[in-house]
Amino acid sequence: MIDLHLIGIGSGSPDHLTRAGEAAMRAADVILLPRKRADTADLLDVRLTLCDAVLGERTRVAIFDLPTRDADASYLKAVETWHDAIADAWAQAIATHLPSGGRLALLVWGDPSLYDSTLRITDRLRARGMALSVTVTPGITSLQALTAAHAIPLNTLGSSVTITTGRRLADGGWPADTDTLAVMLDGQCAFETVDPAGVTMWWGAYLGMPQQALAAGPLGEIAAEVRMRRAALREEHGWIMDIYLLRRARS
């Protein structure tokens, strides 16, 4: 039996871990850390720094190579194939580092339940017959970190909020019956497809980390700035994790 703990780590700052998350990390027999492409080595370094800040000497840290998604295939098909490959990588790492079972931890950016597929990959392992018990420990989400960094409320009085992705915003436009959009996973700057009239934007990248970057203002005035800044930051660090809030003024 593998006792799997999925631990939300926010944007990678030790301050985004809850006390329950710290306890789960210390209780693990092994923490698996993914290694992506060479140009994103900083992502692994963030997790290693987090482990150094939290762990006792007993916990082992093991690194495994994370498969990459086929950028040329259709999105949903590519993601399904990618998740299968990640499940294979997990299974191999578990067989190597916990052949007799035990407590395994994975550190998840943001929160394991909010636009993250870790739980779906866990279901793949169960479907293959692996005996798993799963515990989810949420951390500070990027959405919480964004509103805190800008000192703004998430919603306007009496109104709803829609949490969506850049892909959905670009394909479907602004959803009906909401004046506030929280947009995640937007690598293509879908905010530029929005009519900027009456729209305010609050943007943040690397939230809670030393390289945190913020911008806020009328969308029409800061959209170009945000595009340029995120491109420069991605070039500098090899990766970027950002999120933004869009809010329409009520007519």
Rank of each mutant, 00 (worst) to 15 (best):
H16C: 02
L169F: 03
G139H: 03
T162P: 07
T135P: 01
T40V: 05
A23S: 10
Q144N: 12
G101V: 05
L98F: 12
I63G: 01
V108M: 08
Q188W: 00
G173T: 08
A190F: 02
P153A: 11
F64L: 10
A20V: 07
T178P: 00
R120T: 03
A62H: 06
K77A: 14
C189N: 14
E192G: 12
A71W: 11
E225R: 10
L125C: 03
Y75E: 12
G102P: 01
M184T: 02
L219A: 01
D179A: 07
S160T: 14
V161Y: 00
Q212K: 10
L169Y: 07
L98R: 02
Q92G: 15
A23Q: 11
R120H: 14
L44K: 06
A224P: 00
A95E: 14
L146V: 03
A53K: 03
M228N: 11
P218A: 13
T193V: 06
I163E: 06
L76G: 10
D52G: 05
T193G: 03
E221H: 12
I121T: 11
A215N: 07
T135M: 08
I63C: 08
L181G: 08
A170Y: 09
M130N: 00
D195I: 09
S13A: 13
A205I: 04
P153L: 07
W82K: 13
T49D: 15
M241Y: 04
T40R: 15
L146E: 08
R168I: 07
E235A: 12
R35L: 12
G172V: 07
V183P: 04
C51A: 11
A53Y: 01
H150V: 06
K77R: 14
D111K: 06
L76I: 13
D242L: 04
Q211V: 03
I121A: 08
P99I: 10
D177L: 13
L214S: 09
D39C: 10
L214R: 10
R120P: 06
